[in-house]
Design a protein around this nucleic acid. Structure first.
Lengths: 214, 214
DNA sequence: TTTACTTTCAAACAGGCGTTTGATACGCTC
DNA sequence: GAGCGTATCAAACGCCTGTTTGAAAGTAAA
């Protein structure tokens, strides 16, 4: 919510309120499902405000996106060993992805748009997803090397390891409506998210290490 | 395509054409993204045909769904050992999920609707997804027991193993627009799908076996 | 205060959507 | 062939969408 809420002029304040509301609605309803009218209602702004400040709904999405938090995650903990870096990354990544109260709604917005392309998907892929895949590829490669069998694993196989890890992570967000119906007590509180992250790391490290031993 | 295309009367033929077209469009564009006008255009039927034959767009989706192929997959190969049953199931499941030419578009339709609920989601969960999760839970439990450490693994952990497997599978469908942008040569032909399935099985078996040894 | 510019607002616009309508054509029984 | 229920059709309906408009209100320098 209150992310870019500090601003000097009245105009900058409505801009900021619109961005906050947009991030909230986009992450909850998706780009298609979100309506300008709902965003403006939540931002207590007039219906024409979005087009005045951002030109269009697309323009609003483009400005609402902010890839810095995800990039920061990748630069953190550089001094740790690869397995631990993976563990820390997945925990923080899952917090961004599952915790509705997390200030960075970017990942939740992006996750919704993966399956059905919007005009912004190219930018998202270029600036956020491609670097993320590259980062994780390097991490998996390091883990393989540390286990002494990395040179046997080809590029395609390495890529699939990254997909396996990301697939597990994204599942909890994409399938949340289903999981909630299957298991009514499910709540993504901090404790649950940490347990999920822990499971994914253990499961994935075993999968990766298995590859280096084939 | 030609799935229910054989029918006697002219009325039954348009019904069948509508269902075929609906399955195609729903799986490509999702329920929200699909329009009755496009479905009718592809089925070479009048725009009012859907409401005449199925009452509404929701009714069309409900009749277009058919859970039998997915259920059949779970009943097959009952005589094999659990690991092999998992391997065969994942291969066939991925064929349904990724191969556009596969006659069963059900999984592809369902996959699109997981993240954003339609009136049919409750039925889908009850009749298809819940049984699928149960089936996979039993399979994972059997694999754990065969490795002699199954009793140490609790229900929550077991459920997360199922999520890990399904997450990996669904990733390739959900993220296809992204993966295509990242890796232009990616094509889901039979050879590629088999390689993906093989990777998921190896990766997951290692993850499962790791749990029984903790 | 006047002036010029920026920002907000209610209202309307054009287009797409699912759905309804009433007329028309069809296929059948008698 | 007449009569009748079924199926198809073009057209329109009401609603919601993103966007535009032109007037009103606010802001700040001269």
């Amino acid at each position: 919510m209150m992310e870019a809420a500090e601003a000097r002029t009245a105009s900058e304040q409505t801009r900021a309120r619109l961005l906050d509301a947009a991030r909230e609605v986009f992450s909850q309803r998706g780009f298609q499902g979100a309506t300008i009218r709902e965003i403006c209602r939540r931002a207590e702004a007039n219906g024409a405000a979005v087009n005045y400040h951002f030109g269009s709904k697309d323009g609003l999405l483009a400005e609402a996106l902010n890839f810095a938090p995800l990039a920061a995650l990748q630069k953190a903990n550089a001094s740790e060993c690869p397995s631990i870096r993976l563990r820390l990354f997945i925990r923080d990544f899952m917090m961004m992805l599952l915790d509705e109260k997390n200030p960075s709604s970017q990942c939740r917005i992006m996750a919704r748009e993966l399956a059905d392309p919007t005009p912004s998907l190219d930018k998202i892929v270029r600036e956020a997803i491609a670097p993320l895949h590259e980062f994780m590829g390097k991490l998996v490669r390091e883990i393989l090397n540390a286990n002494g069998g990395g040179d046997k694993v080809g590029a395609a196989e390495l890529r699939r390891c990254v997909y396996s890890i990301l697939g597990q992570c994204l599942f909890y967000r994409h399938s949340h409506p289903v999981l909630h119906r299957l298991h009514h007590t499910l709540r993504y509180d901090h404790k649950e998210i940490e347990a999920i992250a822990e499971h994914i790391v253990e499961f994935s490290l075993a999968g990766i290490k298995h590859l280096s031993k084939k």
